[in-house]
Design a protein around this nucleic acid. Structure first.
Lengths: 202, 202
DNA sequence: CCAGGATTGTCCAGAGTGTTGACACATCGT
DNA sequence: ACGATGTGTCAACACTCTGGACAATCCTGG
């Protein structure tokens, strides 16, 4: 019977995260004030604390939500190349990198000075992020390319996710170039049998 | 400081009206049960009564909201003919009549047997409806055709609104034909000077 | 016509939740 | 060292929703 109550809670949560998003994108996470956040939504500070136990929890939720939004876009990118593994990976990774580059929240995270900002969450809370992204990519590959060997598939998906995340944090080239390199790696992993000899085949 | 609380109230109101809309469009206003309405949204019956003092109040609010939605569409129809008074009136009235004919809520109102249903509101609560529609139309004409005499303008607008409402309740012809007739009347009223003699000019 | 069920509208005690002001504590710049 | 600022916690209070009860009314079938 408490169905409306639930929607109110989720609405409150969304509003809080919206306000937090704006504040973080504007002035950075360390400049975010819990009192301002509560006031921006029109709720008491205590209510905010009953929804998010700590400021860190706000950061985690913010990061999590942004991640899921990105994954949605990636999913669509993958679906555009259901016949070419390399092209699909290139497209998805390229999309991810450019998106991350433009996203004001991620930008704010990365430009935060030193160990301030939301960067810690990228390592701390990355567990569930990796989990989600990996699960999604794995499900996709399983469904789209059932011919790939399970072991190779798992390795390839894991590599793709981790390499992409790495390039988000530490980009060494343009998104497109990085995407090509990652796709190259992933394809090699996926199509290998694991039985190759280390010795030259002569 | 109660900004969030307000949005929750309006949200509750919207949800209630949405549920009421569905129920009325489906089974008619007299078959609508306050208990079902509250349950559909997930609140107690008491909460429903604190938002709407009576079932009649629900009907009024429902009618009012639907009216405002229609007016929005009419406004757009008017803007398409800012150079031809007759065409504008014809379009707006025609749109209104066909819209009213298709609208499931209005359909449910009109098909309710006898004095049941929402029909009473069309006369009871029509005061504010007429007020709103008239004000909108008057503002439009004043802005779009400043050359029309104020007295004639007021008469024309009033006639347009009342004739349209009348044709919604009691349609004697197709929407297009009714629209043409109403537009004809309105144009005659608007362009008259009020100085014509009743006696033949000989 | 009448009895019984359904429905509306009202009331109230209790539970749940948000508000408010206060506090201890940590951090930081002066 | 000090005051200012911000985080996190607490308890008393106020408000709102809930759930059950109730009378009054309407409808329906016998």
């Amino acid at each position: 019977m408490a169905r409306f109550r639930e929607t109110v809670r989720t609405l409150l949560r969304e509003r809080l995260l919206d306000a937090a998003y704006d504040a973080v994108a504007d002035r950075g996470f360390d400049k975010l004030r819990m009192a301002h956040l509560a006031g921006a939504v029109g709720v008491s500070r205590q209510t905010l604390y009953s929804e998010f136990p700590s400021k860190e929890a706000v950061g985690e939720a913010l990061f999590q939500r942004e991640l899921e939004r990105c994954l949605l876009g990636i999913q669509q990118g993958l679906d555009a190349h259901r016949d070419d593994l390399r092209a699909a990976v290139t497209a998805a990774v390229g999309f991810t990198l450019t998106l991350a580059g433009r996203n004001p929240l991620i930008k704010a995270m990365l430009t935060s000075t030193g160990e301030d900002g939301l960067l810690p969450y990228l390592t701390t809370r990355s567990a569930s992020a990796f989990e989600t992204a990996t699960a999604m990519a794995d499900a996709y590959v399983t469904e789209a390319w059932p011919g790939v060997d399970p072991v190779a598939r798992e390795l390839a998906v894991d590599a793709a996710v981790r390499l992409t995340a790495s390039h988000i944090v530490q980009s060494t080239a343009s998104p497109e170039e990085s995407a090509r390199r990652i796709a190259d790696t992933v394809v090699r992993v996926a199509l290998s049998t694991g039985q190759e000899s280390l010795a030259p085949t002569q």
